[in-house]
Computed example of a mutant assay.
Amino acid sequence: MKKIDLVEAIILAKKSKGLSWESIAAELGASTVWVTSACLGMNSMSKEPAQKLCALLNLPDAAMASLMEYPTKTWDQSIPQDPLIYRLYEVVGVYGETLKEVIQEKFGDGIMSAIDFSLEVDKEENPKGDRVVVTMNGKFLPYKAW
Rank of each mutant, 00 (worst) to 15 (best):
I10W: 13
S37D: 13
I115Q: 15
M112T: 14
A50D: 10
T32Q: 12
E48A: 15
L53P: 02
T36W: 12
K100C: 06
T32C: 01
G18T: 09
S66F: 00
L19E: 06
S20F: 02
C54P: 02
E101F: 03
L59Y: 13
F107D: 11
Q77L: 14
Y70D: 11
E97H: 02
V91Y: 10
E101W: 01
G29R: 05
E69T: 13
R87T: 12
K100M: 06
S46L: 12
Q81F: 00
I85N: 06
Y70A: 13
R87G: 05
A13D: 03
P71K: 08
S16N: 15
M42R: 14
L28P: 02
S44P: 07
Q77P: 04
A50V: 08
L67Q: 04
Q51H: 11
P83Q: 03
E101N: 10
L19Q: 08
E90A: 12
E97D: 10
D61R: 14
V92R: 13
N43Q: 14
P60W: 07
E90H: 10
S46P: 09
A62H: 07
S46C: 11
S78I: 01
I79F: 05
P49E: 04
D61A: 15
G41A: 10
G110R: 06
A13P: 13
V92H: 09
Y89E: 03
K17L: 11
E90V: 13
I10A: 13
K73H: 06
K47H: 13
V91K: 04
W21S: 02
S20W: 05
S23Y: 00
M64E: 15
K100V: 07
L84M: 13
A114V: 14
D109Q: 14
F107V: 11
Y70C: 00
C39R: 04
Y89L: 01
E90S: 11
D61G: 10
S31D: 14
I79M: 08
I85S: 10
D61Q: 14
S16Y: 01
P71G: 07
E69V: 00
K73N: 11
K52V: 04
E48V: 15
Q81G: 09
M45A: 09
G29P: 01
Q81Y: 00
M42W: 13
G108M: 09
A13W: 08
G29C: 01
E97P: 00
F107T: 09
G41F: 06
E105F: 08
Q104F: 04
S66H: 01
D109A: 14
Q81W: 00
Y89F: 12
I10S: 12
N58F: 04
V102Y: 11
F107A: 14
K52T: 07
I24T: 02
L67K: 03
G110E: 06
L84H: 10
K52Y: 02
L67T: 02
M45P: 09
A65E: 14
K73P: 00
Y95Q: 12
G96W: 04
L28V: 03
W34P: 07
Q77E: 12
E22V: 01
